[in-house]
């Protein structure tokens, strides 16, 4: 039980996919314009990571090692297609806001990275917890970045105005703001962990 908890927590803290491993940056920067988008993307990615980790680890003995990467890709793409169709049917506005980044979860390096580095070597339960941890860590990073961007760029949190009369800096919602925020956050984390 303790080991499972560690598997889960490492994805959020010491092996955080966004800030520590710098994986999956494209969707992180592109869709973190509002908290709702960030959270939706995080949930979708979590589902895909957990699903693909589960399937990969349960058939890891059957896949020949030479064709393992293509077979991982097929498994991942299947889960992404499920997410794509479900989102289009039940959350059409979110699906429109995330745009091409929903199918692009399939080429997100976190998902393939976990399948290759963890799920193909460990048991089913541990892989599921690893996927959960990674997914939650990714969601956490997304929500953090999108909170900063929404607050500064739009003057709102979850659509509610924080301070009346605050003139939002539109730059933060646009592309340069994303790069600026992640650069400063990474520098800050380096600064804190170095001491």
């Amino acid at each position: 039980m303790k080991r499972l908890l560690r598997e889960f927590l490492k994805g959020i803290t010491i092996e955080n996919p966004t800030f520590r491993l710098a994986l999956g940056l494209c969707p992180t920067l592109a869709i973190s314009t509002s908290i709702v988008n960030g959270f939706g993307m995080g949930l979708a990615a979590t589902f895909v990571i957990v699903g693909s980790n589960m399937i990969v680890s349960s058939i890891r003995g059957v896949i020949p090692s030479k064709i393992r990467i293509p077979s991982f890709i097929v498994i991942i793409a299947t889960f992404v297609t499920i997410v794509e169709l479900v989102m289009k049917a039940y959350f059409p506005s979110l699906s429109k806001a995330l745009g091409i980044f929903v199918p692009l979860i399939a080429v997100n390096c976190i998902v393939l990275g976990r399948a290759e580095a963890f799920a193909s070597k460990h048991g089913v339960v541990r892989s599921i917890f690893d996927g959960l941890g990674m997914g939650v860590g990714f969601t956490f990073a997304l929500v953090l970045i999108s909170t900063i961007r929404e607050a500064f760029g739009n003057g709102t949190l979850l659509g509610l105005i924080i301070v009346k009369g605050f003139e939002p800096a539109l730059l933060f919602i646009l592309a340069p703001g994303a790069l600026l925020v992640i650069g400063i956050l990474m520098g800050f984390i380096n600064h804190v962990t170095e001491r």
Binding site: L180, M186, G187
Partner: peptide
């Protein structure tokens, strides 16, 4: 603490 990736992101911004 800004060396490497963080400063690269600022430049990109």
């Amino acid at each position: 603490s800004m060396k490497g990736m963080p400063i690269a992101f600022i430049v990109a911004s």
